[in-house]
């Protein structure tokens, strides 16, 4: 009898949200997901911000901020990355001033990581979730995806699980994402990306070169004027990359 009830609840969880998810194939509405993103890398204090995801049909946009409504009534926002599930390609913003600006994007495979689904279950904010783990570009991650929300998406580049990722964190506790909101909203967005310049294998060495040049320029500036307002002995600037870009 107990097994029967469990089975019923399990199927019910699939059935109820299906009606919510179907809505995003309708052009009049999109799915808006908010993740609370925490970054905790001592000795610096923890910082948090929101990551906004808009799912419109086969495309998912990860935004910088919530967006701003323009004169035309549409909400515009800078797109950090876009997942095109139809073409199995992810596009991410990769500015390297002056050669590449914020309108320059790079492509990556979709999904970019390989998951191992683990036989562990839990309930997170009324979502029946299963655990999955992956090792992605230098960090080990544990994710919990909602079996009752069959959207294969998640925060940042993370996706490719049978359900929406509702919680994700790396083994060192530096990066953590937790879904705080999932809703269907009217499609008032005007989102798009700039031109694609190449794939991740091309981007990575270019970024490393650009970053090292940025460090050298900054060092030279500080040495030229040791008394500048943002210089001095007590000043520390540290760069951390979610992906291991400097190998």
């Amino acid at each position: 009898m107990k097994k029967l009830i469990r089975l019923f609840v399990f199927f019910l969880m699939f059935f109820i949200p299906a009606s919510r998810v179907c809505a995003f194939s309708d052009g009049d509405s999109v799915i808006k997901i908010i993740y609370k993103r925490s970054y905790n890398n001592p000795p610096f204090p923890e910082s948090t911000n929101n990551q906004y995801i808009i799912i419109d049909g086969n495309k998912s946009y990860c935004l910088f901020g919530e967006g701003v409504r323009g004169k035309d009534g549409k909400i515009g926002a800078r797109v950090d990355l876009m997942k095109d599930f139809g073409n199995h390609t992810l596009y991410f913003m990769g500015p390297m001033i002056p050669e590449y600006t914020v309108n320059d994007y790079w492509s990556d495979s979709l999904p970019a990581m390989h998951w191992t689904i683990v036989n562990q279950f839990t309930t997170i904010k009324n979502n029946y979730c299963q655990k999955a783990v992956t090792n992605f570009r230098g960090r080990e991650y544990t994710a919990f995806f909602a079996l009752n929300i069959p959207i294969q998406d998640g925060p940042w580049k993370f996706c490719g699980l049978p359900g929406l990722i509702v919680k994700l964190g790396d083994s060192k506790g530096i990066y953590n994402f937790e879904m705080t909101s999932f809703e269907k909203v009217p499609n008032e967005y005007n989102l798009g990306i700039g031109k694609e310049n190449g794939d991740y294998s091309l981007y990575k060495p270019l970024f490393k070169k650009w970053h090292l040049r940025r460090l050298e320029k900054d060092k030279a500036r500080r040495e030229a004027d040791p008394n500048c307002l943002d210089c001095g002995e007590g000043v520390t600037v540290r760069y951390t990359f979610i992906e291991n870009l400097l190998d």
Binding site: F44, L81, M93, V102, D230, E233, G234, F241, I242
Partner: peptide, 22 residues
């Protein structure tokens, strides 16, 4: 006094800043 700041840049790149001034 020390002031801390973190900037979340494109592509998930974080810049941490700390300034100690007397």
């Amino acid at each position: 006094a020390t002031a801390y700041g973190t900037y979340y840049g494109p592509g998930g790149n974080e810049t941490d800043v700390s300034c100690t001034k007397t």
